[in-house]
Amino acid sequence: MRPPRALRQSQGFRSPLGDRVFDVFNAVLLLALVLITLYPFYYVLMASLSEPSRMLRHSGVLLAPQGFSLEAYVRVFENSYLRESYRNTVLYTVFGTALNIVLTCLGAYGLSKHDLVGRTPITLFIVLTMFFSGGLIPNFLLVQSLGLLNNPLAVILPTAVNTWNLLILRTAFAAIPPSLEESARLEGANDLIILCRIYIPLSLPTLAVLVLFYAVGHWNSWFSALIYLNDPHLHPLQLALRQILIDGSTEGVGAGGDAAEPVAVTLRYAAIVASILPILLVYPFLQRYFVKGVLVGGVKE
């Protein structure tokens, strides 16, 4: 008996040859995407290790360093503005993330208590802020009126809680069975202890993702520092990078750097490498948690 027409047609479509061709095409396409994604970073790394004078004359695709020189890196580390801004960024990231996590845990714990009277209006009060924002000028005026201009708190406090992250953690906390905390409660433990001893240890994978999100946010943040911190001694790394990469000046960076000097060419790249190195170092350890974190966040409430 002949198979029905529709079946024959679709079988023709899924012929092994057609599948094979598609699989190969698909793999080539994805490999090309990986190449396009990675090449700019490879280029930066190779350029940063090149001899400045040779890099200056080089044009076209770069596959290996042009000569070999660590001069650019020496310059980066000798440069007091860059060093100071690097230290500032580390401090902002550590303290900023710590504050983020503490407040996010406190908020998520409260919102996860289903029988807490007032939970609905409190949730509404928080979630509503996802749909509006005062905007640039009112935010600036607020920070100014709080006397936080030129104060490192200006880049930490206004982003102390991210509502999206708060909801992610709230969902994780709500999944913890209440029976677990009952015995602790009977032994007289208060909620702060229950949060620290039961909820946080049971939500470590989610917390790891949130730490990553918050920390990367602080590490990469530049705009709030641009408008709130005038004092160069308070500048974070990204502002220093902006001067070098965007304004193209190594003069402002001090240490006698002159844009006309050949090393200015490779210094840009060395600064980029120094700035993304910490992210590259933690990336492999944390990336297996990504899907979980984003997935939980995708849960619609």
């Binding site: 406190l106 208590k113 005062g134 009112p138 935010n139 909620d191 702060l192 949060l195």
Partner: peptide, 27 residues
């Protein structure tokens, strides 16, 4: 029952009041 929970929510709500709702006044 939840005295501690309410107290723990205070800093969070304070953040939202000051830094999310506060700028609305400046508008």
């Amino acid at each position: 029952r939840y005295t501690w929970v309410y107290l723990m929510l205070v800093p969070v709500l304070l953040y939202y009041a000051v830094f999310e709702y506060g700028p609305l006044y400046g508008l």
